[in-house]
């Protein structure tokens, strides 16, 4: 009399998903890494030192996991949120007061803070173990860009609740762009960019205007930041993450003494 577990594991459905027995012996522990799409990100075997928690702090993995948390909670939040001045704040209020077990926004916001921190800790670890040294130089550079994108993701998301905290933090932050050399209308050198006595760089054509879509943080900014936050930057991050992980493997796996 076969057990229920045996019946399930011998069924055609199960076998079509997992093409080999459970990873309980050496052979199948190797096979599982090679045949599973999600696991094949990993090598089959690694040096003991390289995968020790006290060596890696698992911070890269934790950061990636937080990115997934942000993606899932972010998609769910998009169900409730309309990025217009009329509705943005009201939708957040509804989300807070009228949805049951309403911790979606909490998970998303604290996850974002946590992700910034874990990115820093990951870079801290990579620096302290000298893991950016050859042959991993370029992956460090990709990592720096990912750090930048993480900060931008967090920054663009900061505006979306459309409360006092949001618009003034973004106002303070984006005011810097006004002073960009040559490209900001209060930046050094911007006055020199004139054609026939007409200024090229004004407060309606400078770097800050490009960022905000307007002269001040308003409707256009909300839309712009929403699109950047939900589509443009996440796509960039996803692409660079793929390259980052791929390069970890191609540059010799998790670092260790030569």
């Amino acid at each position: 009399m076969p057990s229920l577990g045996d019946i399930i594991r011998n069924s055609q459905i199960w076998k079509s998903i997992f093409r080999h027995p459970a990873p309980v012996d050496r052979r199948n522990r190797i096979v599982v890494m090679l045949t599973n799409f999600f696991l094949h990100l990993h090598p089959v075997s690694a040096k003991k030192q390289g995968i020790a928690l006290s060596y890696t702090w698992c911070m890269g993995g934790v950061t990636f996991f937080l990115f997934l948390v942000e993606t899932v909670t972010g998609v769910l939040l998009m169900f409730y949120y309309r990025p217009t001045i009329e509705w943005a704040y009201a939708d957040i209020l509804t989300l807070r007061d009228a949805t049951s077990l309403g911790i979606l926004r909490e998970l998303h916001r604290w996850g974002a803070h946590a992700m910034v921190i874990t990115v820093w800790l990951h870079m801290y670890r990579v620096f302290l173990t000298g893991s950016y040294k050859p042959p991993r130089e370029f992956n460090w550079v990709i990592g720096v860009i990912l750090l930048l994108l993480t900060l931008l993701l967090s920054f663009t998301g900061y505006l979306l609740p459309w409360d006092q905290l949001a618009i003034w933090a973004i106002t303070v932050g984006s005011n810097m762009a006004r002073a960009t050399p040559f490209l900001g209308y209060e930046g050094p050198g911007a006055q020199l960019l004139t054609v026939g006595g007409i200024d090229m760089i004004t407060n309606a054509s400078d770097a800050r205007f490009g960022l905000l879509g307007a002269r001040f943080v308003g409707e256009e900014t909300l839309n712009r930041f929403y699109v950047l936050h939900c589509i443009a930057i996440p796509l960039g991050v996803a692409l660079l993450l793929a390259v980052h992980f791929w390069r970890v493997r191609k540059d010799g796996g998790i670092s260790g003494p030569m």
Partner: peptide, 24 residues
């Protein structure tokens, strides 16, 4: 320490790494 013989030993990623990741 990271360069000593027992630390350089190769271990299988399943279960030694994937379980750590799962617990994390």
């Amino acid at each position: 320490l990271e360069a000593t013989e027992p630390e350089r030993e190769k271990v299988l990623v399943w279960p030694d790494l994937v379980y750590t990741e799962l617990i994390c």
